[in-house]
Design a binder for these strands. Structure first.
Lengths: 188, 188
DNA sequence: GCGGTTTGTAAGCAACTGCTTACAACGCTA
DNA sequence: TAGCGTTGTAAGCAGTTGCTTACAAACCGC
């Protein structure tokens, strides 16, 4: 995720990508408000003026980070595996895993344009999850599953609460998927 | 929650309380980082220097807001009703309801001392929730329930996602409590 | 090589931030 | 009423913020 500090000579695309990667890393680590454009530029090894040339504003950059990271998983996972896959990718603390969710969760105080991206991202996830049940209120049930996913990420990665924070992913998956199945299957 | 703008003449306790109320309201609405001490003082009808005299720092004020609001409910609710009560109080959009959870959720990017309060608050809730099951991994299951509660608050109040945001509290309670019961009861 | 465009840089601006200080007004006690 | 601690106020400080500007250096077609 973080780029190597090798010298790039006059490569706009690479500089843009480096800024985007650096921004994603810092937003995930500190949230929107506590990340400065100076820090992003420094981590990317670029001049901060370029950040504004390529993205326009810090807001727009944040928007692009969220949009890029969020849509990846949803596009590459079949619906009936989305819940398990999303849950697992959140539970596994791979050093190189995508941290877009952290950026999302750590920036909940920030409104503006990013709120629209956040909402739309939620819509897309929920839409897929809703296909997993044929209950009348499928959309509501999907929202509740989505809420659970986000809540688990919140408690694990932000609050760091034990025992959930360092629980075995298998155990968590078994418990969550079990309860989620009853939520999705019972049509009462 | 907001105080009446009546003139108070030299009443330290009232001024302190007004600052605390104003802070709670603004932190809930905008989160920690996007709330300024000037705004808090202005809403409270007090001078901002008093904020530092009575609370020491913005951080300490935030800590006190979280600690005050969070412990109320937990202290006044019997364990076996805590889940339902907490869920309901979150779902009902009373204008005068306690918005401490919002302050909590909107300030997830903020570390420091408040993180300790946040964690301890979670501990207390989870400890009570853990008494609801006699499964071996009761603490983990309690964490998952807590995560669900927070996630629902996140999706409802912060993201504002439909249909969950304006769903009938009864429907949500029925679905969540149903699934939660299977999570707590099955000892496998 | 030359002109113009693209990429990178340094410096700074104006606004805002948390917090402090120096001081005035008040009210209680003696 | 005089003295004094408490409460309230105005102003400002030093640092940080997002963003802009003016300019230098590299690149490309000719």
């Amino acid at each position: 995720m973080t780029e190597e500090p090798q010298v790039r000579k006059r490569d706009a695309a690479a500089t843009r990508a480096a800024l985007l990667d650096a921004a994603a890393a810092l937003f995930a680590e500190r949230g929107f408000d506590r990340t400065t454009v100076r820090d992003i530029a420094k981590l990317a090894g670029a001049n901060q003026a370029l950040l504004f040339r390529y993205f326009g504003s810090k807001d727009a950059l944040f928007e692009e980070v969220l949009a890029r990271g969020g849509r990846e998983q949803i596009a590459t996972t079949p619906p009936d595996e989305l819940l398990g896959t999303a849950l697992r990718s959140m539970l596994e603390s791979d050093t190189g895993r995508d941290r877009t969710l952290d950026a999302y969760l750590r920036s909940t105080g920030h409104d503006s344009a990013a709120a629209a991206v956040r909402r739309q991202l939620g819509e897309e996830y929920a839409k897929v999850l809703a296909t997993l049940t044929d209950a009348e209120d499928a959309d509501l049930r999907a929202d509740l599953i989505l809420a659970w996913l986000l809540g688990i990420g919140l408690v694990r990665d932000i609050t760091g609460k034990e025992p959930l924070a360092s629980a075995d992913p298998d155990d968590v998956c078994r418990l969550v998927l079990g309860a989620a199945r009853t939520l999705l299957e019972r049509s009462g």
